[in-house]
Nucleic acid binder design. Structure first.
Length: 749
DNA sequence: CCATTCTGTCATGCC
DNA sequence: TCGGCATGACAGAAT
């Protein structure tokens, strides 16, 4: 039997060698291990000569077959196993040569390695990898809500500036007129400068930017405006007399004129019914009223045109005219309730932006009318970014639309009143003392809150003063007014914060804290409780409950207006509302006098200073600090995840590069081996090949496809070749057996 | 309804 | 010691 085994094994060996020589790859491994155990025993058992094939079978040992006891050299075996494992470690990625060729053809365009130019290939690959990485990053960013809104913000920022380009000559003239109105009202340069005390540098910078924008966008008119601004020393930075400036002048006039509580009515009444405002008031107040009247007259535009030479189509004029004519009740429409918040907000706070440069402010104003109109037409969802800014571009064209004009100003007035109310409420509840108020005045009084931007903050001043401090002295009244202004400035109600948010967004660019963006719209909503302060505003109050709803209610969902168009924008708006989230509502509930945006983003020094300015309860302070902590941690978490993702992507790219390098090196190695080892007695697994012309492919030895679809394709080829070889081997085995029987029979005698 | 993903928050450690 | 950042872990919402 021993001889039989010898014959058989030798015969098989010779047969396999023969097959290898003729180019047929015999993967004995498969058949030996699983399909033909007897044959495996026969082959592996007899001698170590066949252990060469164990090179190929070594991994079978790992599968539990174990090395045959008769294996002559376990050391060699283990050595071979180790080497083989190393080789396999190298060629995980390996695929048959044919496939590799195809792969190379496929990969070369990408800059993948071609054996001759590894470096270039790597370089190209790395470059492509970079692209890949950037691509995924972008995708990720887009996927992230933050990022998505960041784009919106970017769009917002990008789109908004061009709006100034839409400023017509009339707009500019009107701005200049309004600006002069501020001067007439006594808003001195110091007021303006003072307003920028905190962000003076930013203001200057943005002012320059704004002037540049004016130059580029507005052309001559803008230049003229810029010259006016530059020329006039009083105005200084003067944010051009924008609509807000006009309104802002109100406070100044108010303190002097309105020290008696009786002014409450007079104070707000003019706002509410601008047309009826008497001109017998003080000159400033009269001027102010004239402005308001102009606004009121806006529908007819005749009066405004006469007084200010403002063309009918002027956005600003349209802007101003809106509210007075229309009672707030009328103004408050359902759509305003939902959207109005945003548009109104924007219109209101945009002027308030502390550091908002002339250009930006000027640009923003035109937006209001266009906005309102666009909102009415398209129905604006609460999304400012989507509707508002894009619409701004067309703002001038939309200005003429009559019936819809009243809304913006009405909304503005409403917002202003709400702001006032909230400020009053805050002032009352928080117990601002005149001293702090005076301090605040130093900070904020001139601070644009008055003259510079805030249209509503002044109004808030007036209202707060009128209502809260009836008998207060002029100083105290001014202090309170300043306090209220500071509130508004600080975003007590959230308006200013919104504006500031805008600022921050612009300043920070894409990095901007996007959740804040939601505030952009949301901040317009007022706490209903605040409305109750002023009895005569109650009618306004319930009218504006629409606006209040989101903020007032803990539920983040906006009241779904029936008229709203259900769309992605609205959905986005809802998302933004939800973005406002708990802290925003908490802050409102706690009547935090400043926005979360400031709470989170202000430097610790400014933050502490801000806190010191207000008499806040422990609960409020705790909430504020929690908000700050959570906000910062949220941003940190976002950054952390972003970095993590980037790291993963980079690692993935590196792995791919290394795999390519390994594949390349292995191919080179195999090629060298084939070149020099043709005469040697290589392992059976390597020796037997399906395609004689093809270099040895370690990939064939691997179970792992290592090459994706190409690898699968190759596998199919390999399977076919193996099947053929299998049948041929069986046939040959039968022949050999027959020969063996024949020989034994003949040799037996 | 379940699994996965996304996002916010907390706790912890480090600087 | 405080403030901020980084990060793992968890929970809830969204998909």
């Amino acid at each position: 039997m021993l001889s039989l085994k010898k014959y058989l094994t030798e015969g098989l060996l010779q047969f396999t060698i023969l097959l290898s020589l003729i180019g047929v790859r015999v993967d004995v491994d498969t058949y030996l291990t699983s399909q033909l155990p007897p044959l495996r025993e026969i082959i592996l058992g007899p001698s170590s000569a066949y252990t060469q094939t164990q090179f190929h079978n070594l991994r079978n040992t790992l599968d539990g077959y174990g090395i045959h006891p008769k294996s002559i050299d376990l050391d060699n075996y283990f050595t071979a196993r180790r080497l083989l494992s190393q080789v396999r470690a190298l060629d995980r990625f390996q695929v048959p040569t044919t496939e590799v060729n195809a792969w190379l053809v496929h990969r070369d365009p990408e800059g993948s390695v071609s054996g001759s130019q590894p470096n270039s290939g790597l370089a190209l690959e790395s470059s492509s990898g970079l692209q890949d990485v950037t691509g995924p990053d972008n995708g990720v960013r887009e996927s992230e809500t933050e990022q998505g809104f960041g784009e919106d913000l970017e769009d917002l920022g990008a789109v908004a500036p061009p709006v100034s380009g839409d400023l017509t000559k009339e707009d500019i003239d009107l701005i200049g007129i309004l600006w002069r109105q501020d001067i007439d009202l006594g808003a001195g340069r110091e007021v303006f400068d003072y307003s920028h005390r905190q962000k003076e540098q930013d203001v200057d910078k943005e002012l320059q930017d704004g002037r540049e924008r004016e130059d580029t966008w507005s052309g001559e008119g803008a230049e003229a405006l810029a010259r006016d601004l530059l020329v006039d020393g009083e105005t200084g930075e003067s944010f051009p007399a924008q609509f807000p400036a006009d309104v802002s002048s109100i406070p100044e006039a108010v303190p002097s004129e309105s020290e008696s509580p009786a002014l409450q009515n007079s104070l707000l009444s003019p706002l509410l019914t601008g047309t009826e405002s008497p001109f017998d008031l003080e000159q400033q107040w009269q001027d102010l009223m004239s402005i308001m009247e102009m606004q009121a007259m806006e529908v007819n535009t005749s009066a405004s045109e006469i007084l200010y030479n403002a063309p009918p189509g002027d956005p600003l004029s349209t802007n101003y005219s809106l509210a007075p004519n229309t009672p707030i009740n009328q103004n408050v429409s359902l759509h305003q309730a939902s959207l109005g918040g945003c548009s109104q907000d924007f219109s209101l706070f945009s002027p308030e932006v502390e550091s908002l440069p002339v250009a930006s402010s000027s640009t923003l104003l035109p937006l209001v009318p266009s906005n309102s109109t666009s909102l009415n037409s398209t129905f604006g969802s609460t999304n400012l970014a989507g509707l508002f800014f894009p619409s701004q571009l067309n703002g001038t064209a939309n200005d003429t639309s009559g019936p819809e004009l009243p809304d913006p100003l009405g909304g503005l007035l409403d917002e202003a009143m709400l702001d006032e109310i909230s400020l009053m409420d805050l002032a009352i509840e928080e117990g601002f003392n005149p001293v702090q108020a005076s301090q605040l005045e130093e900070e904020f009084d001139s601070d644009s809150g008055l003259s510079l931007d805030s249209s509503h903050s002044p109004s808030s001043l007036s209202s707060s003063e009128g209502s809260s401090s009836s008998s207060s002295s002029s100083s105290s009244s001014s202090a309170s007014s300043s306090a209220s202004s500071s509130f508004s400035e600080e975003g007590a109600v959230g308006y200013s914060s919104d504006s500031e948010t805008l600022d921050l967004e612009e300043a920070e660019g894409a990095v901007g804290y996007q959740p804040e963006y939601s505030k952009f719209c949301r901040m317009s909503y007022q706490d209903p409780s605040q409305l109750s302060c002023l009895p005569y505003l109650e009618h306004v109050g319930h009218n504006h409950t629409y606006n209040m709803a989101p903020s007032a209610l803990d539920s983040a969902d906006l009241p779904p207006p029936s008229t709203l168009k259900k769309g992605s924008k609205e959905k986005q708006a809802d998302f933004l509302d939800k973005q406002m989230s708990r802290d925003g509502h908490r802050a409102r509930a706690m009547k935090i006098p400043f926005t979360n945006d400031k709470i989170i983003n202000l430097p610790v020094e400014e933050f502490n200073e801000l806190l010191s300015k207000y008499q806040l309860s422990e609960a409020q302070l705790s909430l504020i600090r929690d908000i700050r902590r959570r906000g910062k941690n949220k941003m940190a978490a976002q950054n952390c995840r972003k970095r993590k993702l980037d790291t993963i992507l980079n690692l993935e790219r590196d792995v791919e590069d290394l795999q390519r390098d390994k594949a390349r090196l292995l191919r080179e190695k195999e090629n060298e081996k084939c070149m020099q080892g043709a005469g040697d007695d290589p392992p059976l697994g390597f020796q037997l090949q399906a395609a004689s012309s093809q270099p040895v492919q370690p990939g064939l030895l691997e179970d792992s496809p290592g090459g994706g679809s190409e690898g699968q394709r190759q596998d199919s080829q390999v399977v076919g070749s193996r099947t053929t070889v299998y049948f041929f081997c069986c046939w040959f085995f039968v022949v050999v057996v027959c020969l063996f029987v024949f020989l034994t029979a003949t040799a037996a005698p």
